[in-house]
């Protein structure tokens, strides 16, 4: 069968052939850095503060794409003239891109000096490129519905939560995929014990499944679910004036890392600028600004957050040690089989 991807590849090959002949034109655009970045509050701060300051300092313009889907767009563009210089995605998508040769693997301290200051998880062998922030995937729960605050991942299987627990459609959401691997670890021999994970999935039925991460937030807020798999920032952001009766639990078995990762495309014509941007994003002041805006844990060890963030986010070597990083390369290679199995399990 001819997959969509192979068609894309054929197309990009053609594109490569035509663009090779015009290097001078490409140099004319050298002062533009093309990146992807998140929307929402993150995007607001990037556009209002972070990116303008970068443009000023490095005398360039940044074209920041906030419109999904980044990876297909990158796939469809020429490898020699990629649509992005720096790709920001979660870790699993970085692995997909790396496997297809769309992004480069590691960054060196020479290119990106601030990499010297990051926690080991940010450049571990589970990471393509460099992690700039991470969230912790654990359990969010209502504090006003009389449920016992969870301590373990197993607490989600509490029969009292039948129909009021939530997770994600595993084929389309990486938090759901993390949850599945975590079930393997908690109920079986480890993250890759899929048989144990499938069995454990049965225990969670009936369960409400969503495709967007943001939907889980809303389901918790509207008490459509009383307990569900979610990243810490999706719960912590409801504080102060925005306070809602929800809280986050980091289960004793550990939390799964949901990394925001930057990588550089091999065809980028502005690699130095791309590395400068990575370095910039790892600067303590930029890290602090964004971390406190969206409740992400900064990857740079030297960042000192304000007290209320510091107590909750992963800002010490001890807390960082509870982070579990899935092997996305391993997972992505089995994704189709897994999708088929879980769909069957959750359908019946």
């Amino acid at each position: 069968m001819i997959s969509r991807r192979s068609i894309l590849r054929a197309g990009t090959g053609l594109a490569a052939a035509t663009t090779l002949g015009a290097p001078t034109i490409l140099h004319a655009q050298a002062s533009t850095l093309k990146i992807t970045t998140w929307g929402g509050k993150w995007g607001d701060i990037m556009k209002a503060t972070v990116l303008p300051a970068f443009e000023k300092e490095f005398k360039c313009t940044v074209s920041a794409d906030q419109a999904f889907p980044y990876v297909p767009k990158l796939q469809a563009s020429s490898k020699n003239d990629p649509l992005y210089d720096v790709l920001q995605t979660n870790s699993n998508e970085q692995w997909n891109c790396f496997t297809e040769g769309l992004v480069m693997d590691k960054v060196s301290v020479k290119d990106v000096p601030n990499v010297a200051d990051v926690y080991p998880y940010a450049v571990s062998d589970k990471i393509v490129g460099v992690t700039i922030f991470t969230s912790a995937i654990g359990l969010g729960y209502r504090t006003d519905k009389g449920i016992t605050p969870p301590k373990s991942w197993k607490d989600l299987a509490d029969p009292k939560l039948a129909g009021a627990r939530g997770s994600y459609l595993i084929p389309v959401n990486s938090l759901g995929q993390c949850h599945l691997m975590m079930l393997g670890k908690v109920y079986g021999k480890g993250l890759q014990d899929l048989d144990a994970a499938y069995k454990a999935l049965e225990l969670l039925k009936p369960i409400k499944l969503v495709d967007f991460t943001g939907q889980m937030e809303k389901m918790l807020l509207s008490a459509e679910v009383n307990e569900g798999v979610i990243h810490d920032s999706g719960v912590y952001r409801y504080e102060g004036d925005n306070r809602q009766p929800v809280d986050f639990c980091s289960p004793t078995e550990g939390v799964v890392a949901l990394e925001q990762v930057l990588s550089v495309t091999p065809g980028s014509k502005v690699k130095q600028l791309a590395y400068a941007y990575m370095d910039y994003m790892l600067r303590p002041d930029v890290q602090k600004l964004l971390a406190e805006a969206v409740w992400y844990s900064p990857a740079n060890k030297k960042v000192k957050l304000a007290e209320k963030y510091d107590t909750k986010l992963l800002t010490t070597p001890e807390k960082v040690a509870t982070l579990i990083q899935p092997d996305w390369k391993w997972y992505n290679a089995r994704k189709e089989d897994i999708d088929g199995r879980v769909t069957k399990i959750l359908k019946s």
Binding site: W38, G39, G40, K41, G43, Q66, A67, T213, Q215, E217
Partner: peptide, 12 residues
């Protein structure tokens, strides 16, 4: 429509 779709991924 594109802005709404992307907005929805972060702020529903």
């Amino acid at each position: 429509p594109v802005v709404l779709f992307n907005y929805m991924k972060f702020d529903l």
